[in-house]
Design a binder for these strands. Structure first.
Lengths: 228, 228
DNA sequence: CTAATTCTTGACCGTGTGGTCAGCTTTGGC
DNA sequence: GCCAAAGCTGACCACACGGTCAAGAATTAG
């Protein structure tokens, strides 16, 4: 009957699930390091501890494996797409945004590099996603940022460039890890390093965009003095 | 006698210079797009309008061609290494730094992507450079930034994270050009777009790091609200 | 003009590529 | 214990890879 041609279901026997997991993990590393063309099924198989034929048995083809990996990465990304509204506190939203992107860079550096490699290569597999879903996401956020600016909660900066700034400065620590390591001299960044970088970026962005607390704006209620 | 094994000299006949130039330009594109492993000499040859044998005749090997390209990119980069001192105006230096990096991203996007691809792949050819020359450069700049902070000319931010912030946010527009295009919807960014982005980044960095003009420092005006 | 040098390139080589397949073993429901 | 389904994999294929080479063509120096 062979209904093996599933795209994203997570069913299947325990053996299948275990092997697919090993293959996906290995493939994420290899594709991230060498790009789509530069990666070889042989190397992925070796890193997964399986014969090459077995990798093809589970994944069908190199192309299908790559697409499935990209979908997995985008899925993680989409899990971050919580909604915001113009009534939220800009400082809190931006801070949470930076923190979660930074956390993603730390948690899934290979995934970040895989994505980066795909984009640098001209996004042959992700063009639709970029000019579709992602474009909509960015512009919906941009609209909120603009409302904040109109209400005087932040400077009237272009929201799209701001989003790019946050993306690039956070992903840098995953994508250019080799450069960061070489320059800092550390084998790897510690949790405290990451925390300090997060605070630095948050501070620069919030201060640099003139973000104000909602309470500081008008003599309305001041119940939101919160913590700090 | 065959003294063809030159590394960086620019001599040679007119024919040689012309063909080498075509090969280097084509190789920059192809290596940037597919990475070292993913690029093929055949494709480089086609883009240069030469038979494959001819490419090997001039460049010796794929590896040697790649190394030579990296050297060329680093040479451009080194041309930007003008010296700064603690007596300079921080705002001017940071502004010029951002502007020149932004200009590099616009002028040599393929070179930027080539470099990025090398770093994402673990910097197999550039590790020495990263932990040597580049490390020294960063730390000499960092020392100046720190002096500025001690003199009260800017907030005491970690200079290394600041340099990474500027690098990443400017290179983004070369390396992730495909993403920028997809999201903005524009076929390419205009000169005015680049100028506005440069101004935005400069503004956020300078304001975000609390950079002051040297003259504004001495009088005890209302600079005290920067503390918290 | 001649001779040395540089340039050009198709044919070729060994190797690694993504992918197929037949035949085997293992697993799991009944 | 049976047996269909799932899992496994070495052998194999056509092809593209980086690189070599020899022999001819174009250029240049004397």
């Amino acid at each position: 009957m062979a209904k093996a041609d599933n795209g994203s279901e997570q069913e299947g026997g325990a053996i299948r699930r275990r092997n697919e997991q090993a293959i996906l993990a290995a493939a994420e590393r290899v594709f991230a390091r060498h790009g789509y063309r530069g990666a070889s099924v042989q190397e992925i198989a070796e890193q997964a501890g399986l014969p090459k034929s077995n990798v093809l048995y589970y994944m069908g083809s190199k192309r299908r494996l790559y697409v499935r990996l990209l979908e997995q990465v985008m899925e993680r990304w989409n899990a971050m797409l919580d909604d915001i509204s113009a009534d939220d506190d800009p400082a809190e939203v931006l801070s949470a945004f930076i923190r979660s992107k930074m956390w993603m860079s730390r948690r899934y550096p290979e995934g970040s590099r895989l994505f980066a490699s795909e984009i640098i290569g001209g996004a042959p597999f992700l063009q639709e996603f970029l000019s579709g879903e992602l474009r909509d996401w960015v512009h919906s956020r941009a609209a909120v940022f603009r409302q904040w600016a109109e209400r005087g909660l932040m400077d009237p900066v272009d929201p799209v460039w701001l989003i790019f700034l946050i993306w690039s400065s956070t992903q840098h620590y995953a994508d250019f890890e080799a450069q960061v390591r070489g320059i800092t001299g550390h084998e790897a960044l510690s949790d405290e390093d990451i925390e300090r970088i997060t605070e630095f970026l948050t501070r620069v962005v919030i201060k640099g965009c003139g973000v104000k607390h909602p309470a500081d704006r008008a003599p309305a209620d001041e119940a939101s003095l919160t913590e700090r």
